[in-house]
Each structure stands twice: as C-alpha cells, then as structure tokens.
C-alpha cells in the first residue's frame, strides 16, 4: 500500500518545492496538500488516511495540533511541525501539544532535500507506524 503524506501549507511555492524534493527522492506515495485549516481537517479524514502529517506552524499550527491530538483516532499519526520560528518557547509549545518532531523550514532547496531525505528514511524506512483503521 502506498503511503499518503499530508502537507498543510499555504504557500504554492513551498508545496511545489516539497513535491519536487519528494519526487526527486523517489517517494512514490500520495502527496496531499491542504492550504488552509479547514482543508487540512477534511484531508485528514479522507481515505486513505494520511500516514504522516507535515504541518506549517504558521498556518494555525497551534490550534490544529491541539485539535488533532484531542482525537484519539489520530494518536498514532505522526505530526511533524515545520517552522521558521525557532524560539525555545514556540518549540516547547509544539512538543507539549504533541508534535512528534519539529523541523526548521529550509530556505534553500539543497537543505530541503537533506531534510526530506532524513524524514523519509526515518519515518518510512525505520519507524514503526500504525495505520488508522
């Protein structure tokens, strides 16, 4: 079964770059973009359910993360926060609300490729995930 990656991101450019990086790294699953919080909520409840969520913190990340983690059905769905804010307080909040990891949103494509490779290798190559029933 192919993996589904939900990308909660409102920048068309960033979506395009992420898709390009994933394709270049031979990710063969579905990349499902959601450009606003309501679209994110709907995309998360659409089958096949996303195996992993990348959440732009700027896009009501706090509210969405809090909401998603209150849903016990989503307990096993990894949510990785992408952020340009690296203040310790903002990061602490994201981890406290249940982000599995927080990642610095890269500003150049080469760094993005390294990040996406590490992400794919770990989450799709080594981590044990549990698909939602």
């Amino acid at each position: 079964m192919k993996a589904t990656l939900l990308l909660i991101e409102d920048s068309d450019t960033d979506i395009k770059l992420m898709k390009q990086a994933l394709t270049q790294l031979k990710f063969e699953g579905e990349i499902r973009p959601a450009s606003d919080p309501q679209a994110a909520r709907e995309a998360l409840q659409t089958r096949p359910y996303p195996d992993l969520v990348l959440l732009n913190w700027r896009l009501e990340g706090r509210e969405l993360l809090e909401e998603f983690r209150q849903d016990s059905e989503l307990a096993t769905t990894p949510i990785l926060v992408l952020t340009t804010q690296c203040s310790p307080d903002a990061l602490a909040l994201a981890y406290s609300l249940g982000a599995n990891a927080c990642l610095h949103k890269p500003v150049d494509y080469e760094t993005l490729l390294l990040l996406v490779k590490a992400l794919l290798d770990f989450w799709f190559g080594s981590a044990t995930r549990l698909p939602r029933a």
């Binding site: 927080c102 610095h104 770990f122």
Partner: peptide
C-alpha cells in the same frame, strides 16, 4: 542520529 540529532529541533 540523522533525523533526531541533525534535523529535529528539540
């Protein structure tokens, strides 16, 4: 090591 020590921001 790569994901958690080089990329994760914790």
């Amino acid at each position: 090591l790569t994901f958690w020590l080089k990329h994760d921001l914790s």
